[in-house]
Design a protein around this nucleic acid. Structure first.
Lengths: 243, 243
DNA sequence: CGCTCGTTTGAAGCTTATCAAAGTCAGTGG
DNA sequence: CCACTGACTTTGATAAGCTTCAAACGAGCG
């Protein structure tokens, strides 16, 4: 009923390595609970020590860090197929909250169940670990963007990343995908003010690099955008090989 | 001879969870090679697909990302006890290089050996995985700094982080530690220009928050610096408990 | 001593933030 | 059908923060 194997997460794993019959059997036995969330709804509270981790089945969610002055920084965006807080199984306490950016469908799995499953499968363990390592690589790419890229570069790189991650789980149609997100949220992802994001988006539109009405994002010329963004998808490790 | 068990890495593990006799036995059997590096020397090349991962025994090293315009962004600093590129065991290709910031002593371990060791110990696996999860948490903290903190805040937070990480492996004497690093390197870590870092450092000195001659960094008033930095060490997960 | 590397200082200019207001659009109720 | 509302985008003006270029300064070294 919760069907990890049918989820885009299984697609993400399978994109990087073949799953053995034993792997599939173990994943099939894992059962969880599905919940729904609306935009801006909190999925996981900061400082939580929950006994379960959640897998995003549909929608976009973000990791949010609040600052004392009321500021907000988003440290990662999660797309369908992301095991959002898998690291919550290892860490004592989460240093951030997770918030739904759009309507989200989310499956929860108990840490005890996950640990039991992984304890008998070094291979699945490496694959799950790999997914958290890719998350870290994504975060490094964000650091590079925030530290050394122009506002255009940051947004362009971000859009390339999202497109690429959606393609990896088969959720982009052509170079276009559903992206019903506020500019204020974008601003908190790239570390700029809303006003500046607005102006930068206008420039990207003018250059013909993106088409976005606030609901669907289309990238007319992916190569052009990649060039403008200095985007190299290597860090997403989209290579199928034994691990 | 390479003695993982005597390294600050073992201290880092032990800081988070007790090591069983079996854990210790396994770690003891792991053998590697030690190499030395001077400042600015490359420890791991970008795009490398090395068959070994390295553990920093002494010194500071950084992950570096080069940009087409000649820019440079550092995405993480490693202190003694960090298993610098443990994630290299999982990823196909590293998206960054690792460079010695100071004189460094480094131990290398084969991926095959590491995998073999971890395959028989779910507990050690979780601990190694945990260390990469903490790395990711550190990166998130950097994203927050770069996105939403002032130049003072960024540097102050950075110094708090380094102090805290060194304390965690018992390498800070009081609130002071050896830190022979160039301002240009600092600039590439916090995403500012050298000139601006210079002026910001002067302000931090003026405020009595740091004392730094380029070789040894002293923090006269750790609480004051933490307050200025909005620093909360929770993300470093310095809690000892069964994992 | 002269050279190199790194820090410090100065000035000009660009990028980005902030504050404030106007414009757009979907939904709601009269 | 039209005013009204609330959420979001767009525009404008101004100020602050940061970068860049250029030069001076200081310490370590052959």
């Amino acid at each position: 009923m919760t069907a990890v194997l049918d989820s885009p997460f299984a697609a993400a794993l399978n994109r990087r390595d073949d799953l053995s019959d034993e792997d599939r059997r173990l994943l099939e036995m894992l059962t969880g609970t599905v919940r729904l969330y609306g935009p801006q709804e909190e999925i996981i509270a900061e400082d939580s020590t929950a006994a379960e981790s959640c897998l995003l089945l549909e929608g976009f969610a973000v990791r949010v860090h609040l600052l004392p002055d009321g500021g907000r920084q988003i440290t990662e965006i999660n797309v369908a197929g992301d095991f959002v807080d898998l690291h919550g199984m290892l860490l004592s306490k989460l240093d951030h909250s997770v918030v739904a950016l759009t309507r989200c469908r989310v499956a929860f799995y108990g840490h005890a169940d996950l640990k039991a499953m992984l304890a008998v499968s070094p291979h699945l363990t490496r694959l799950f670990w790999l997914m958290t390592a890719i998350d870290a690589a994504i975060q490094r790419a964000w650091i590079v963007s925030m530290g050394r890229r122009t506002s255009e570069g940051r947004l362009a790189h971000f859009f390339c990343e999202v497109l690429c991650r959606l393609e990896a789980v088969g959720l982009a149609s052509g170079s276009s995908f559903s992206f019903p997100v506020r500019q204020a949220d974008l601003a908190d992802m790239v570390g700029l003010s809303v006003v500046h994001v607005n102006r930068t988006l206008q420039r990207l539109r003018q250059m013909g690099l993106i088409v976005w009405d606030g609901a669907t994002l289309t990238i007319p010329d992916p190569d052009g955008l990649r060039a403008a963004a200095d985007f190299d998808p290597t860090y997403l490790d989209l290579v199928k090989r034994p691990r």
